[in-house]
Design a protein around this nucleic acid. Structure first.
Length: 406
RNA sequence: GGGUCAGUGGCCGAGUGGUCAAUGGCAUCAGACUGUAAAUCUGACAGCAGUAGCUUACGGUGGUUCAAAUCCAUCCUGGCCCA
């Protein structure tokens, strides 16, 4: 199979977009030149962590970079850490992560691929489980592997040294994680490995180890960690500041609009497919007084479009204007069947699972957060008379359509 | 192995026998306001209950007491010091 690789400059331009570091850049150029000359795609490794089944656009940053390599004709090698999931990557963590069972790992891996598949091209994609080689290693093999580094080196890592200083436990097996990951690179003979900046240590260690095992060390490319909706912390599910890859277009659009203005360019760079030139244009427009709101709408549109379609993005934009700006009601609202016309409002919204307890329902009503047909209801003790088709609004974004059934 | 300290609500962290469903901060939710689902201000924030009542909660279990998050015993988890 012959491939037509783009020229070095073209490749480098695309690769450089948004990256934090390329270590070392000259080696990358050499590898690319060699690839073009020998007509051989580079093997670009990315470790998938099956302990986190829900991907968000923060994960998308690095997946997009991997996709960029695929678009350039290279081979994406996705490693499922089914074996290492038993350890749990300590990167960026301040506590030991619970080990997963094999079954959980499998299920998570499945949903990981469904979601990563949104971004990656299924061609030029090689998927490997690291249990394939790690489970076969003997204790002797492990000792050989571990003899390539020192405790001092491991403790240099921020994650570990912070935990150590602050008296937070570090289990010994966590120290082995970077070695397992490094060994993956040897097993798949990676030319390049991608990761977030929090992976830098692990990625670099693999270079040393590959050298010990007589392989040409991989080039490492780190991507910035995308901030979440709060604009401060990294995007993560546990902080609930994330935009899921599989979120509905409307939610995706709305959530993007809620990012702080300062993050607009960063999001364009890391999460959209716009070219560096296009992004520079937006940047200068903003500096010349363009309303950030408009730029943010463009951003929301772009990202939603990439994950769905132009039409979906348009619809999401319309829905946002309707729901949030004009405070209108959305088109599709869940229905709730009422058997009686006389009923407590609190019971309805609790039963329809719009709130997690009746106390919460009462609280919302008391605070004026619930309305029927745009009329606020603030008395939670009175029963209400319902008409078929009444629209109940709960809080800012939840709606319920009442349907009488007899 | 010995000693010692700690484990509190989504998180951080007060509280050392009754006045504790438990101060405060963060997060969250609602209302007002706004270009925004931002910022700010106000309020709420265990569950059940037609409203001062009940239930479940301060690592687990058992106990002392009229009464325990607070005391005792034991177990689990972890930190630190010594070996």
């Amino acid at each position: 199979m012959t491939k037509n690789f783009p020229k070095l400059n073209e490749q480098m331009d695309l690769i450089r977009k948004g990256v934090e570091e390329i270590i070392p850049e000259e080696e990358l150029e050499k590898k690319i030149i060699k690839g073009i000359k020998n007509n051989k795609p580079l093997r670009v490794k990315l470790g998938a962590d099956p302990s986190r089944p829900d991907l968000h656009i923060g994960h998308g940053v690095v997946l997009k970079k991997l996709r960029a390599f695929q678009d350039l004709g290279h081979t994406a090698v996705l490693i499922v850490g089914d074996f290492t999931a038993m350890i749990g990557d300590p990167s960026g963590k301040n506590k030991t992560r619970p080990a997963l069972t094999f079954k959980e790992t499998k299920e998570n891996a499945k949903s990981y691929f469904e979601q990563a598949g949104i971004i990656l091209n299924s061609k030029d994609l090689e998927i490997r489980n690291n249990s394939e080689w790690l489970s076969k290693m003997s204790f002797e093999d492990v000792i050989k592997l571990l003899s390539n580094s020192t405790i001092a080196r491991l403790l240099e890592r921020d994650d570990f040294s912070n935990r150590y200083k602050n008296g937070i436990p570090i289990s010994v097996h966590e120290l082995l994680y970077p070695f397992a990951q490094a060994y993956d690179s040897i097993a798949v003979k990676s030319d390049i490995e991608l990761g977030g900046t929090d992976q830098k240590f692990n990625l670099l260690l693999a270079r040393d180890i590959q050298r010990e095992y007589n392989q040409i060390p991989q080039v490492i490319i780190t991507m910035p960690i995308l901030e979440g909706l709060d604009g401060v912390n990294k995007m993560s599910k546990s902080l609930d500041n994330y935009i899921g890859l599989t979120e509905k277009p409307n939610d995706m659009y709305g959530k993007i609009l809620s990012i702080p203005d300062e993050l607009i360019i960063r999001y364009f760079t890391l999460a959209s497919d716009l070219s560096v030139n296009e992004i520079d244009k937006i940047k200068s427009d903003l500096e010349n007084g363009k309303n950030p709101r408009d730029a943010k709408h463009e951003l929301a549109f772009e990202i939603t479009k990439n994950y769905y379609s132009i039409d979906d993005a348009k619809n999401a934009a319309d829905a946002f204007h309707k729901l949030v700006i004009k405070k209108d009601i959305p088109d599709d609202i869940p229905e709730y069947k009422c058997s009686s016309e006389n009923i407590l409002l609190a019971d309805i919204i609790f039963d329809a699972k719009m709130v997690s307890s009746k106390g919460e329902a009462k609280r919302l009503i008391k605070q004026g957060g619930v309305s029927i047909n745009k009329k606020k209801i603030t008395e939670f003790l009175n029963k209400i008379n319902i008409q078929n088709g009444d629209i109940v609004k709960i809080g800012k974004r939840k709606f319920l359509k009442l349907v009488l059934s007899d």
